[in-house]
């Protein structure tokens, strides 16, 4: 399955990459890691739980995005990721 990346590296935004993995693996690189690292991780896990997505690696480069921005970026990423997965399945079925 292919990788999906969304977002930007601009201030107050974040870039999120989803790639296939054997289990859930979240890697966060944030300018506010020391203070908000855990809070960002909690948001990521909550959204992944809601989507029921476990075998995925999430790479976040955060430039000080607010939690709802991170949530929105991740939801978009998940949507593209699942679409990419569906397309692949479709191409297998149709040969």
């Amino acid at each position: 399955m292919k990788k999906v990346t969304v977002g930007t590296l601009e201030s107050s935004d974040c870039q999120i990459t989803l790639s296939p993995a054997t289990h859930r693996h979240v890697v966060i690189d944030s300018v506010v890691q020391a203070v908000f690292g855990e809070a960002i991780e909690a948001v990521i896990h909550r959204v992944l739980d809601q989507a029921g997505l476990d075998s995925v690696r999430v790479d976040v480069i955060d430039k000080g995005a607010l939690d709802y921005a991170i949530e929105a970026r991740l939801k978009t990423a998940i949507k593209y990721y699942e679409e990419a997965a569906d397309e692949k399945e479709l191409s297998i079925h149709t040969g």
Partner: peptide, 21 residues
């Protein structure tokens, strides 16, 4: 003004379409 972030982000967006991450 951190225009580098704007430029690099725009370029990365174009690269994603070619599946370069």
């Amino acid at each position: 003004e951190n225009l580098l972030a704007t430029l690099i982000s725009a370029l990365l967006q174009r690269l994603r379409q070619r599946d370069v991450h």
